Simulated assay, not measured.
Amino acid sequence: MSAPVFVGSAFVAQYPTGGGNFWVPLQYLLGLRATGVDAYWLELLWTRGDPARDREFIEVFCRHVEGAGVAERVVLVFFPDCSRNDPPGRAEYFGMPAAELTARAHDALLLNLAASVTPPLRAGFARTALFDLDPGPFQIWAREYDLGVGSHDVYLTIGQNLGAPDSPVHVGEVAWERVWPAVHLPVWPDRSGEPGTRYTTVTQWWTNQYAFLDGETYDCNKRPGFLALIDVPRQAALELELAANIHPGETEDRALLAGHGWRLVDPEVVAGTPDAFRRYVQGSRGEFSAAKPAYVRARPGWVSDRTVCYLASGRPCVVQATGAERHLPCTAGLRFFRSPEEAVEALAAVEADYPTASRAARALAEEVFATRAVIPRILAAAGVA
């Protein structure tokens, strides 16, 4: 029997209205379990300094875990007296006693998503794999900050194009093992036989994050990426919808988008829970999305964990090129663009034969992104297959 695997995260419980975020660790947990692995999800939460808000976050997370049917496989560790950068203090455990977690970790692999689990908290695991979900910016930031590069046993990334000649990001001597983001098909039914409503995406408008390399700025905000595509709805003569957290006070941006034919909806309303996110994705006609300018500049070969959910649902995707197109089969279900003109052309190509594009989207998910394809590669790279 293989070693236990813990999927480590610290980005779900702290964002209770991020329905899409919840799916990221869940896909890997479900995929590992389906492969026969004794798998668990370890979620970490540090106090925000507001006890009532902390309890709300815990309650929402536990409710979603119950709703997903994985409560017996999830442990939440809450630190009520310290922040992430402090030495670990008093901890509260939900879903698994501390002693049991310690015992299970002794022989386990920690799949550390986005360097979520800090050094003191990963010390008890038999083996650790750093899993980079933000390729390009992550490698740049890791040169300046301690993000765990150099202190894990294995290094995984969804950046399929990192290290390629057209990617300026230095990977140094780190042996990054490249895998695709995963989607667990049994919980994403094929909707390719249904027309859907309109092209959508769920996104952050601002992250207020930047990376800097060789005098160049790598902008991690989606806003400039979408503003560069401002005329696409009119030129394509299609309804494009953004579920973006644009503050009501950002009246200029909201008016600019609306004036150019974009529909704006509140992501907390349409995709604020795991179930709502799935309904929103599956009810869409497809995905249309810009990438962060940082991904466009870095060309790391990033594909969004959101996009693979659209593909699994049989929803064609038209997304901005980041280098991933060099590593994927050419398909009508996933089209990449490098300019607004190419975006319009790609949307027109999908609409010209939507049934074929829908079937191709699901087929690509089955071939490339399904957990049954991705999980064995992760386990092999981590040395626990």
Rank of each mutant, 00 (worst) to 15 (best):
M1P: 15
V5L: 01
V7I: 15
G8L: 06
V12W: 08
Q14H: 00
Y15F: 13
Y15I: 14
W23R: 06
L30M: 06
T35N: 00
G36D: 03
D38G: 10
D38S: 04
Y40F: 13
Y40K: 00
Y40H: 13
L44N: 11
T47W: 05
G49T: 01
D50E: 09
R55E: 10
G67E: 12
G67F: 04
V74K: 08
V75N: 10
N85R: 15
P88T: 10
P88S: 10
G89T: 14
R90P: 08
R90L: 08
E92I: 00
E92D: 07
Y93M: 03
F94I: 07
G95N: 08
P97V: 10
L101W: 14
A103H: 14
A105W: 06
D107K: 14
A108M: 09
A108C: 15
L111Y: 03
L111C: 04
L113I: 14
A114N: 15
R122V: 09
R122T: 04
G124Q: 14
T128K: 13
A129N: 08
L130Q: 10
D132T: 11
G136V: 06
I140W: 08
R143D: 06
R143N: 02
D146Q: 09
V149F: 10
H152L: 09
D153K: 01
Y155R: 10
I158N: 02
Q160K: 05
G163P: 13
S167I: 10
H170W: 10
G172F: 08
V174Q: 03
V174P: 03
E177N: 15
E177T: 12
R178G: 00
P181N: 13
P181A: 06
W188V: 02
P195A: 11
T200E: 07
T203D: 04
Q204H: 14
N208P: 00
F212D: 11
F212G: 07
E216F: 07
Y218R: 12
D219Y: 02
K222G: 00
R223W: 04
F226D: 03
F226G: 03
V232A: 07
V232C: 09
Q235C: 01
A236G: 12
A237C: 13
E241A: 11
P248L: 08
G249I: 12
G249A: 15
T251V: 15
E252S: 07
D253G: 00
A255L: 05
L256Y: 13
R263S: 13
V269R: 05
T273Y: 08
R278A: 05
R278L: 08
V281N: 06
V281T: 12
Q282I: 01
E287K: 09
S289T: 15
S289C: 11
A290P: 05
A291P: 11
K292Q: 02
A294W: 14
V296E: 08
P300D: 03
G301S: 01
W302F: 15
W302S: 06
D305I: 00
V308R: 04
L311G: 00
P316R: 04
V318F: 02
V319Q: 09
T322W: 02
R326M: 00
C330E: 12
T331N: 12
F337V: 06
P340M: 05
E341T: 13
E342D: 13
A343P: 02
V344P: 09
E345T: 13
A346D: 11
A348N: 13
V350R: 13
E351P: 14
T356L: 08
A357G: 10
R362M: 00
L364Q: 04
A365F: 02
R372G: 06
R377D: 11
R377P: 06
L379R: 07
A381G: 13
A381Q: 06
A385T: 12
